[in-house]
Design a protein around this nucleic acid. Structure first.
Lengths: 192, 192
DNA sequence: GACAATCTAGGGCAGTCGTCCTAATATCTC
DNA sequence: GAGATATTAGGACGACTGCCCTAGATTGTC
């Protein structure tokens, strides 16, 4: 096994399990089973469980940054880019309906645990927030760009939570359409 | 101690701790400390921890039903009543910013644990949903009353989640105002 | 005051948790 | 091939978990 490959393997398994089962409910034994190593072997790669969490958050931050950069490249207009974000609700529907939004649910859990890394986890939110703000600025809404970014974030968080509770795809689809319509109506105002 | 008073005392302590720390992170020892009884004494009141959870959910359902009935009585118009719901975000701001929405966070946690009682917990959402739907029907939006109820639910859930992450009262206040404005604008359309 | 029902404290149960140690194995470097 | 380094398995640790038992205290009823 190559340099740090096993470490990355552990982080990815932990990432998945933290999302699906929650951070606290996931034990070393759970991760070990997925990666097929012994429990006692963790200490060689990570000193504590919190270290694994930090590594997980770090990769999530990296992954998010890459995803946002990709959207920046792919989307022709800011509107298209914002829609890329909105549409995760549909692309990841199968996961979200069972486990909620990976960002929101981790932040909420760490907040309740009053965990040291909760601020670090919140940074994923901040990443989206800043990126959305930038897009809204480019759309001509520089004045209330941040408020609009928060609105989109909040909207998707709400839909994710209710989608998790009610397991209703049609509802999610409707909300995504509504968000896109709202976005379209807004950009018209900005470019008269 | 009167008939079932200790039991109710345990339920109330558990309710609070489940909210602030999460269900799984709360142990018998935690509850025992609050109620000032010994750990081993629980078995006399509840067979299992899940039984306590069920009792907690039950009282939450009851409390919610009473609250909705009160709003029904106090609010002169359906619009006022819906605003009663929206304004919990401000009344409970101090709790929400630290621990999120009690309904949403419990449902999310139980979903991740794939807990037997997760459907029961979701019923609290359903209670709000039906009540809001009724109010929107009375407002003259019987056709899309349920969709509007979901929208209000989702909106508040999103704001609660972000308020928990960013700890920003001004943002919550703004969103509450926007929701009220949105509500006012909507009811105008229904009563021309 | 006698008796039954209810409630209580304290501790033991087997299991799991995160952590840490040690000894053996694999891998790399020269 | 020798020696250093990296990785591994397995198990032990103390602490905690939910759960359960028992024996004593309290309360209520006649």
């Amino acid at each position: 096994m190559g340099h740090g490959a096993r470490r990355q393997q552990i982080v990815e398994a932990a990432d998945d399990l933290f999302y699906r089962q929650g951070f606290e409910h996931t034990s070393f034994a759970d991760i070990a089973k997925v990666v097929s190593i012994s429990r006692g072997n963790f200490y060689h790669h990570f000193k504590t469980k919190d270290d694994i969490l930090d590594a997980v958050i770090k990769t999530r931050l990296d992954r998010t940054q890459h995803m946002l950069a990709d959207w920046e490249e792919e989307g022709a207009t800011p509107k298209d880019r914002i829609k890329s974000y909105i549409k995760i609700l549909l692309t990841n529907w199968l996961m979200i309906k069972s486990y909620g939004c990976p960002v929101g649910t981790l932040c909420t859990e760490l907040a309740k645990l009053n965990h040291t890394s909760k601020d670090e986890a919140n940074k994923v939110f901040t990443l989206f927030r800043r990126w959305l703000k930038k897009q809204f600025s480019l759309l001509g809404h520089s004045q209330d760009a941040d408020a609009l970014a928060m609105r989109v974030l909040s909207w998707s968080q709400g839909v994710a939570t209710l989608s998790n509770a009610f397991n209703d795809y049609k509802y999610v689809k409707q909300e995504v359409d509504k968000m896109c319509d709202w976005l379209d109506a807004m950009s018209v105002k900005a470019t008269p």
